[in-house]
């Protein structure tokens, strides 16, 4: 155990935690997205899926706890790294340019907290309904349609999911690098993998509010 704590004390140890929890959260987001896409099948299918999840009972709570822990560890480790990095350059450059860093890498530190804020909003909105103007417990389909019908609510979802996609684009690539899956032969594949899933998440999740706003599903 000491050895693991020693490892965690280092930046690579923390990044290992960030990477592993990041992948757990990614897999959840992916599953969550496929689950939700059942909205395109119809109200019954989506509501039945929701009911199925609710009926899992203790298992659902176990999964929720697991995901919550992953999230906490993810945020905790990254916050510690953030402060470490903040301290590593007390005096900034007057002129600093970058060559390789892309938008998704540069915005990780903003997209992360934004997604966290969105997550809280999302839970209050669709899970607890406390910030939903027309929330009916158990009728997920109705809640989604009526929620997304408000343009700015959809706007928040669309924006948040674009950020989520961006976050995954760098996050998934980093996942390989941080866990040491680096090999010149497969490195191109890493980038393609990350980009594919980033866009998949964006397209999949954004399709729902867009479909509601456009009136494709009612």
């Amino acid at each position: 155990m000491n050895r693991l704590l020693d490892a965690y004390r280092t930046s690579i140890g923390k990044k290992f935690v960030v990477a592993v929890t990041g992948v757990i959260l990614f897999l959840f987001v992916l599953g969550h997205m496929f689950g939700n896409l059942q909205i395109f099948v119809g109200a019954e299918r989506l509501n039945a899926y929701a009911a199925f999840l609710q009926n899992l009972g203790e298992l659902l709570w176990a999964v929720r706890t697991f995901l919550f822990l992953a999230l906490v560890l993810h945020v905790m480790a990254i916050t510690q790294l953030f402060f470490q990095n903040l301290g590593a350059r007390p005096i900034k450059y007057r002129v600093k340019k970058t060559r390789e860093t892309d938008l998704s890498a540069r915005t990780m530190i903003y997209s992360g907290p934004a997604i966290l804020a969105f997550l809280i909003y999302h839970l209050l909105h669709f899970t607890y309904g406390s910030v939903h103007s027309d929330f009916i417990h158990g009728d997920v389909y109705h809640n989604v349609i009526s929620g997304f019908a408000i343009w700015w609510v959809s706007g928040i979802y669309i924006l948040a999911n674009i950020l989520l996609g961006l976050h995954f684009k760098h996050g998934l690539w980093s996942w390989f690098q941080t866990l040491g899956f680096a090999h010149p032969k497969y490195n191109k594949w890493r980038t393609n993998f990350a980009t594919f899933f980033a866009y998949l998440i964006i397209v999949g999740n954004v399709s729902m509010p867009v479909a509601v706003l456009a009136g494709w599903i009612q």
């Binding site: 020693d6 004390r9 280092t10 930046s11 690579i12 923390k14 990044k15 790294l81 470490q84 990095n85 301290g87 590593a88 350059r89 970058t98 060559r99 390789e100 860093t101 890498a105 540069r106 990780m108 760098h170 690539w173 980093s174 690098q177 941080t178």
Partner: peptide, 21 residues
Amino acid sequence: VQAMQDEGFGACTNYRECEAV
């Protein structure tokens, strides 16, 4: 890696700037 921590260096977030310079 532990020494790197003690010297006050930052953590890698895979910006790839190092190899570019």
